[in-house]
């Protein structure tokens, strides 16, 4: 059927909207290249001094490092717990397991400000405020549902008879898990790990509540920069983050393409 006038008009509108979604972020690029000391558009000359500052300043470097450590630990922990949990729920598959699944997805949908309150409330008596462990645990609870979703999606296409066959042939539970189940849900596990990393790397609301001085993540430092609204180093950091986003996006696109290829063959 030939698209009608309305449909063509709508398609043009959709393109405009999609460009509206992406282009505003690009303004960070020119602002980061300004030669001036304050946030401004560059005039005739460009300068890389703010990038130089970003990559030589002790404060920014330590924030990159801390965010990296926290995001990596969160990703590992959330992927481990989330994958086990997804396999367990898949095995049980009863009315109760669906209830538990719904409950475990709550941290993803409950407003971040309430999660932040909850962690802040508990971390005070536990002495976890402003510590790596505190941030990693909080981020893990927020990120595990992501892993649960991606791994469950992979398990949905996994044939349970393969597990039966493996056990009938004499493999132990552990061997079955390692040699049969895990290889077939690998794309879901990788996607979950990637999402968990990004969630933690980007997380600001909970971080604002439970970190103060000794742990100062990248989003936290950017938040400060944005509130002070003077130092163009923030723009340089924003450009670096956009670059990382695009790289992560390409990686995940390749992963999901490979995933699609496997399920087709």
């Amino acid at each position: 059927m030939r698209p009608g006038l309305f449909s063509l008009f709508n398609r043009a509108g959709a393109w405009v909207l999609l460009l509206f979604l992406v282009t505003p972020a690009l303004i960070a690029i020119p602002v980061s290249l300004t030669p001036k000391r304050f946030l401004s558009m560059p005039g005739n000359e460009l300068s890389l001094r703010h990038f130089q500052h970003l990559f030589t300043s002790e404060e920014w470097l330590s924030s990159f490092f801390q965010s990296g450590v926290i995001a990596l630990s969160t990703s590992v922990l959330a992927t481990f717990l989330g994958t086990l949990c997804a396999i367990g729920l898949w095995r049980v598959s009863s009315k109760y397991s669906e209830l538990v699944r719904a409950f475990l997805l709550l941290p993803l949908i409950i407003p971040q400000i309430i999660s932040a309150m909850a962690f802040y409330r508990l971390w005070i008596p536990l002495g976890l405020l402003d510590s790596y462990l505190g941030l990693i645990l909080a981020h893990t609870i927020l990120a595990a549902p992501m892993v649960l979703i991606t791994v469950s999606a992979s398990l949905a296409t996994f044939d349970p008879r393969l597990e039966q066959a493996s056990k009938n042939l004499g493999a132990s539970n552990w061997t079955t898990m390692r040699r049969v189940i895990l290889p077939s849900i690998r794309p879901g596990v990788f996607a979950g790990a990637l999402f968990a990393f990004i969630l933690s790397w980007d997380e600001i609301v909970v971080t604002l509540f439970i970190s103060k001085f000794s742990v100062y993540t990248l989003p936290r430092r950017m938040w400060n920069g944005i509130r002070e609204n003077t130092d163009p180093t923030v723009a340089a950091a924003a450009v670096v983050l956009i670059a990382i986003t695009i790289i992560a996006f390409v990686v995940s696109a390749i992963l999901s393409r490979r995933n699609a290829g496997e399920s087709r063959s």
Partner: peptide
């Protein structure tokens, strides 16, 4: 009790103790 619950438990315990608990407290 289905043996599958054993590997659901770690995450479930973590979320109940460190997330649901303080939310109920609030």
């Amino acid at each position: 009790i289905h043996p599958g619950w054993a590997i659901v438990a770690p995450l479930l315990v973590l979320v109940v103790a460190l997330y649901l608990g303080p939310i109920l407290n609030i």
